[in-house]
Write a protein that binds this DNA or RNA. Sequence first.
DNA 1: AGTTTATGTCAGCTTCGTTGACATTCCAAG
DNA 2: CTTGGAATGTCAACGAAGCTGACATAAACT
Lengths: 173, 173
Amino acid sequence: MNERLRKRTDSGDEDLLFLTDDQIRRGIEAMFFAYRGFTADPDRILARSGYGRAHHRAIHFIKRFPGTTVNNLLDILGVTKQSLNRVLRRLIDDGLVESRVGEQDRRQRNLYLTAKGEAFERELSEAQRRRVRAAYRAAGPEAVAGFRTVLEHMMDPDLRRHYEALRRRRDGA
Amino acid sequence: MNERLRKRTDSGDEDLLFLTDDQIRRGIEAMFFAYRGFTADPDRILARSGYGRAHHRAIHFIKRFPGTTVNNLLDILGVTKQSLNRVLRRLIDDGLVESRVGEQDRRQRNLYLTAKGEAFERELSEAQRRRVRAAYRAAGPEAVAGFRTVLEHMMDPDLRRHYEALRRRRDGA
DNA sequence: AGTTTATGTCAGCTTCGTTGACATTCCAAG
DNA sequence: CTTGGAATGTCAACGAAGCTGACATAAACT
């Protein structure tokens, strides 16, 4: 572990060197550069078919929550329905996503990936997982645990709770 | 530390449970949600003045590298010069950034924040640091070290080297 | 019957990516 | 010294993907 972060005073106080403005600033820049690396591979694949990150996000969450409704997706993605609709329209027209009228509530549309959509999702997610796995492997398990911990604290708490509720609902049913 | 990540076989092999597809996928989603939180506060401030993230990025790196050239900024930001120019044009017209013709090479433009630009930069960066600092504090120093380690490995290695060379040049001169 | 909710769509605006064309400046080869 | 290519910066136009506002439709709820 970084020596500069482990120093303590002999009175036992936490050393707060990891909270200096300069350390924080480095973290901010690292986040910016890392996010670029994080999206680079899927971006290339998406560009081949004329899609963007918006399509990737929709595909990803439909894969995780098959049968989810449009409203649900709106909450997770945090965009307007007009914006999502443009993306979804294209995915449906291209035969990657299927939209079925809800059984209990026929106003709702339940969204599913088609076989073609599943294949594309696999291509995207394998590319991205490869990159993240390489970073994880290089950094080691302790670093990964810390990485996840900081990210959890950086999210909007409401969104995090909402998302975990969705996951529980999915896994519990 | 997460117990599931610490298990080892009695032969001493690393347990690779932190590299399962499901763990990686959770990391990917965490990255997505965290990045939203990470940019939320500056986004609000920027929106008040009709700016976007592109302006924030330009301001940030001009602050870090006063007198940097347009080409330098292009390498760091990873966009086309035409795209950056629009952003820079506006910042210059609004009196946040000053562009001075290079002394040795008069094709170059050296970029500086004006007093007004410095003030705006401070407002943006304080908002973002507040959020990141809160996450750091909640997660603790070990987690932060791990966070930084994983992010470093997630970046494009060439970009990382390039950026560190710039930093050394700045700090060494 | 009237209201609310879920979804979809049209029009129009903005940011911020892109490519192409072009002007300016510098440097180096002839 | 001149001239042609390389580096740099700007202008124009296009596209993707956000946004707001208005409105339509259908289903569900009261």
